[in-house]
Amino acid sequence: MRIDKFLKNSRLIKRRTVAKEACEKGLVKINDKIAKPGDEVNVCDIISLTLGSNEIKVRVKDTSDVNSKALADTLYERI
């Protein structure tokens, strides 16, 4: 799954266009490598996301296409 789509499905970022812009600005890293919007995310990858002064680190648990808000937090675990 693409990183911009994963960020939107997991509800870490609310809209896919905002997730794409965050990737283009270098605010998203996959395994300590700056991510482009089309980079693939796999299970066990570590995603670092910088939003303002906050940094969020999560480990990917699942990459299924979940659209439910209740199941969104099952896609990752915070580190």
Score class of each variant (00 low, 15 high):
I46T: 10
I46A: 09
I46C: 03
I47G: 02
I47P: 02
S48I: 01
S48E: 05
S48P: 01
S48R: 12
L49R: 05
T50A: 06
T50H: 02
T50Y: 00
T50W: 02
T50N: 05
T50S: 07
L51S: 04
L51T: 01
L51F: 01
G52C: 03
G52Q: 02
G52E: 06
G52N: 04
G52D: 02
S53K: 06
S53D: 02
S53G: 00
N54K: 08
N54A: 04
E55D: 03
I56M: 03
I56E: 01
I56G: 03
I56P: 00
I56N: 04
K57N: 14
K57E: 08
K57P: 03
K57R: 13
V58M: 02
V58Q: 02
R59E: 14
R59N: 10
R59Y: 02
R59L: 07
R59V: 13
R59G: 03
V60E: 08
V60Y: 11
K61M: 12
K61P: 00
D62I: 06
D62R: 13
D62V: 07
D62S: 11
D62G: 08
T63Q: 08
T63E: 06
T63C: 01
S64V: 07
S64I: 09
S64N: 12
D65N: 10
D65T: 11
D65A: 13
D65H: 09
D65L: 05
D65F: 09
V66D: 07
V66N: 13
N67F: 15
N67E: 14
N67G: 15
S68R: 15
S68Q: 14
S68Y: 09
S68G: 14
S68A: 14
S68L: 11
K69P: 12
K69R: 14
A70V: 08
A70I: 15
A70L: 11
A70P: 05
L71N: 15
L71D: 15
L71C: 10
L71F: 15
A72V: 07
A72Q: 10
A72I: 11
D73Q: 10
D73Y: 10
D73P: 06
D73F: 10
T74I: 06
T74E: 09
L75R: 11
L75D: 07
L75W: 13
L75V: 11
Y76A: 09
Y76Q: 04
Y76G: 10
Y76S: 05
E77S: 09
